[in-house]
């Protein structure tokens, strides 16, 4: 297990390195007169040239990248070219907000899709068909459309929620819950659609296994057979789909945060890419990469927990 974890971590580091290198190269090629953009049209040629020198824009690609990389390895991601805020600080505070949404979504969708998937697999008939149709709709309709709908109905018309804004948990737990409810629902629907389908399929498969009959023949209660044995065996494939959904969710949150004016990584990404604020963009790339690598590792470990063959080999 330790070896397995280390190997996955190693692959993750290689992946991170590849992503950042490609991103840096592309951003370098984009060029553009960043210094002019930062200072505005009224600045003199002289100050613009000075600014470019200050930001190291005149250096060739390789030394610039090596500099950035060695700083980054020491935890220094530089400062935003526009706000002069340290990149690491800006990103960590915003990432925590985004992760709250994403992790909340993953947990909620895991619970809901297990419930729906098992229900469909056991009941079959009309329940199954209904859940299948809803899954197709949930899969097809983009999360931001659902978010727009939710804002209109529950915030603007019914007034149950504030349409926009984010309240930190530390400021008011109830306020926090209110501010994340609609975004999490909007994000969850697509994930639930995909995962519930998988749960349904794997529960149906697992139910047909020989050992299920043997457990029943021993007098084990039906609920225990389903929720302890069948579900655990069906969990692996469902978990794999959930892991894939997670990567998609990182993209979906970007837009949903924009709709609900949540100060997560989304608005920052949108702003920094529009401006060409390379230090921030690189910070976002690294942060997203790290999150993806860590989350995939967590999912791998969970697979190991569910499946002794993975754990013990």
């Amino acid at each position: 297990m330790v070896q397995f974890t280390l190997r996955r971590l190693g692959a993750g580091v290689v992946l991170l390195f590849a992503i950042t290198t490609i991103a840096y190269l592309l951003l370098y090629l984009s060029g553009g007169d960043i210094a002019r953009q930062i200072l505005g049209q009224t600045a003199t040629e002289e100050t613009v040239a000075k600014k470019a020198e200050e930001l190291g824009l005149n250096e060739p690609l390789i030394p610039r990248y090596v500099n950035w990389l060695s700083d980054a390895l020491h935890g220094d991601f530089g400062r935003s070219w526009f706000s002069s805020q340290p990149v690491a600080e800006t990103i960590t505070s915003r990432l925590s907000v985004t992760l709250t949404l994403v992790v909340g979504t993953v947990l909620i969708s895991a619970i809901v899709s297990i419930a729906l998937g098992v229900w469909a697999a056991r009941k079959r008939g009309w329940v199954d068909r209904l859940i299948q149709v809803l899954s197709i709709l949930g899969f097809a309709i983009p999360s931001f459309l659902i978010a727009i709908l939710l804002v209109n109905v529950f915030a603007l018309n019914l007034g149950w929620f504030q349409p926009t804004g984010y309240i930190r948990w530390s400021a008011s737990p109830a306020g926090w819950l209110e501010s994340v409810t609609l975004p999490i629902i909007a994000l969850s629907i697509g994930a639930v659609a995909a995962v519930a389908q998988q749960v349904r399929g794997s529960v149906i498969d697992a139910q047909r296994q020989d050992w299920v009959r043997t457990l029943r023949s021993r007098g084990v209660r039906e609920n225990k057979v389903i929720y302890k044995h069948v579900l655990r065996n069906a969990g692996g494939p469902a978990l794999a789909v959930l892991a894939l959904q997670f990567v998609g969710l990182l993209g979906g949150t970007l837009i949903v945060e924009q709709i609900f004016a949540i100060p997560g990584i989304g608005p920052l990404t949108i702003q920094s890419t529009t401006q060409g604020d390379i230090p921030i963009v690189m910070g976002v790339v690294v942060a997203t990469g790290v999150v993806v690598v860590v989350v995939n590792l967590v999912f791998d470990l969970l697979q190991g927990f569910l499946n002794p063959k993975v754990r013990l080999s």
Partner: peptide
Amino acid sequence: TSLVMALPGLVVLLAARAVI
């Protein structure tokens, strides 16, 4: 393939927008 699939598409597109 595994590299590309690990990337959130929207983040890549936004980063690409800064370039193109």
